[in-house]
Design a protein around this nucleic acid. Structure first.
Length: 224
DNA sequence: GCGTGATCATTT
DNA sequence: AAATGATCACGC
């Protein structure tokens, strides 16, 4: 069941915009999937549902959701006032092989190059099936936005290269953070300490802060 | 364990 | 209330 692959960007956007105003129960029925009672054990359910109904290539491959279009799909939980309710996970953060790495060739820059944002009014008191899809839009970073991302990426990457990954907290970065991204706090991956010696530490991921995604919403949807 | 999809839940 | 750290599911 892998029909419905969008032919081009306009097709994809039109298809996403056709979901605006629908609730997740209606979309789930369309996709033939059951709506969970809560997301505690299915945290990625909404994102996977949207991938399915929009014809994204399934799987956990480290490439855009729509490889032929170079577009990444991101669902964005928002309040009824249009404010992001969560940070946005972008990708895992490499902790090794970073000597000589540059923003321009980074995995995260490639992922953020073109994104289809699909806001979903997702306040926790609203039953999953009754949550409504907002107005989707396709975005690429403006020069200013890319500069903000690049600055944070450089700061965080510098700390990692200097062996200070364990001194990085969610407080670092203006628009981009480095936070745990793992099955649990016992998970381990290799990194290097400040003496250049390898050691095992918690895997991390890059996340966009809500202030940044809120700015995107305002710029593209004129929401206050 | 890694990378995909994220939100949960505790701390500030 | 917002932000940070912890966690859940799935296919390799």
């Amino acid at each position: 069941m892998k029909i419905n692959i969008p032919a081009n960007e306009d097709d994809l956007l039109a298809r996403a915009q056709a979901l605006a105003g629908l609730n997740l129960a209606e979309i789930a029925e369309q996709a033939g999937v059951v709506v969970p009672k809560n997301l505690t054990r299915e945290k990625g359910w909404i994102g996977l549902l949207l991938e399915q109904v929009l014809g994204a290539s399934a799987g956990s491959k480290p490439e855009p959701d729509f490889p032929h279009l170079g577009i990444e799909l991101k669902s964005l939980p928002i309040s009824m006032q249009g404010k992001p309710l969560e940070t946005t996970f972008v990708c895992v953060a490499p902790l090794t092989g970073l000597v000589g790495a540059s923003w321009k060739t980074s995995h995260i820059r490639n992922k953020m190059a073109r994104v289809l944002w699909v806001p979903v009014i997702s306040e926790r008191h609203i039953p999953i099936g009754e949550r409504i899809v907002g107005t989707p839009f396709i975005w690429s970073p403006s020069p200013e936005e890319e500069q903000l991302l690049a600055l944070d990426w450089q700061e965080l990457t510098d700390m990692i290269v200097l062996g200070e990954v364990e001194n990085i907290s969610g407080k670092h970065g203006q628009v981009l953070q480095l936070r745990p991204k793992a099955a649990n706090s016992q998970a381990k991956t290799q990194a290097f300490n400040k003496h250049g010696q390898p050691f095992r530490t918690l895997p991390r991921g890059f996340y966009l802060k809500t202030s940044f995604t809120q700015m995107l919403l305002r710029n593209h949807l004129r929401i206050d």
